[in-house]
Amino acid sequence: MKELLKRYKYAPADQLPSYCIPITVNGKTCGRLRPITPDTLHSEEEIRLLTEWRSASGEWFTTQFPVTEHGTRQWLEQQVLQADDRILFFVDDEDWNPIAQVGFLHYDEVKKQCEFDNLLRGRKGRFGNIMIYALLALGEWSIRVLDLQTGYLNVLADNARAIAIYKKLGFQEETRTPLVKQVEGDVTRWVVAEDDDTGGEAQRYLVTMKVRTEGFYETLKQIL
């Protein structure tokens, strides 16, 4: 299956539409998930968008730093495209303009599970809740094509808006991990707290949420 992910990530430009995953609302296509390929590395506009989205949502990541286009390009090439267990998609609106990104990593062929990650919306499309349908499209594709059995994600506990969306998609809280802040220069990290770090009280919490195939399909029936 990792070879399949590689085919999606390295699809030639003239074949890319056949690798896109449609996003449907009430039976109508309102967008698509477009695999991010090496072509994005040479697109100033797409690198700019990825950089802006990451910078605007920085407070919701456990590692926070000044985001640059150079750093985004390096991250995309080294940590996404070259990783055999990871894929990232643009969420394109009905006019095929990129408005968000979604993806997953740590795809495990044996356990049939992965971590959904980098779920960022840049702007609203015509459908205000397109991100919900984009995640439904990604989940359905992951089950159908990759035989995914369990999906999980990590989200900061104070990100109430994101948690509400994930619950709507069928994710349930599994664990809650205490975090403390570490600052090194212009980089801030929220790291797992040791018992003597918190002084009896954590500064933030990281929530791990999971959804299994049966729960996802139940959600899919309710929403679609």
Rank of each mutant, 00 (worst) to 15 (best):
R204M: 09
V155R: 03
E140Q: 03
K2I: 01
E184W: 09
C20I: 12
D158T: 00
W53G: 13
A202F: 04
E46I: 00
R48C: 13
Q113F: 02
G151K: 04
H42W: 10
E77C: 14
L81T: 12
G122T: 03
D93K: 08
G31Q: 07
T177F: 05
L206Y: 08
T150K: 03
I163D: 05
I36A: 07
E77L: 14
Q78H: 14
S57V: 04
E94V: 00
L179G: 04
K221S: 04
L105Q: 10
T37R: 12
N26M: 02
I163E: 09
L135H: 10
V211A: 01
L136W: 02
P38I: 13
A100R: 13
I165H: 00
F216R: 04
A83G: 12
R161E: 15
G215L: 01
G215F: 11
E184N: 11
T150A: 01
V191K: 05
S55Q: 04
L153F: 12
E194H: 15
T37E: 14
Q203E: 08
D186I: 12
K221G: 03
D186G: 01
Y19A: 11
A13P: 04
Y133D: 11
R126K: 14
I143M: 04
S57H: 14
K112A: 09
E45G: 02
K221I: 03
G215W: 01
M209T: 06
E59S: 05
V102F: 05
T175Y: 15
D108Q: 06
A11G: 13
I23H: 06
A100G: 11
T40C: 12
P22W: 14
I47K: 01
G128Q: 00
V91R: 08
R212A: 14
S142M: 01
F65Y: 07
G122W: 07
Q64A: 13
E52D: 11
L156H: 03
E69D: 06
L33H: 08
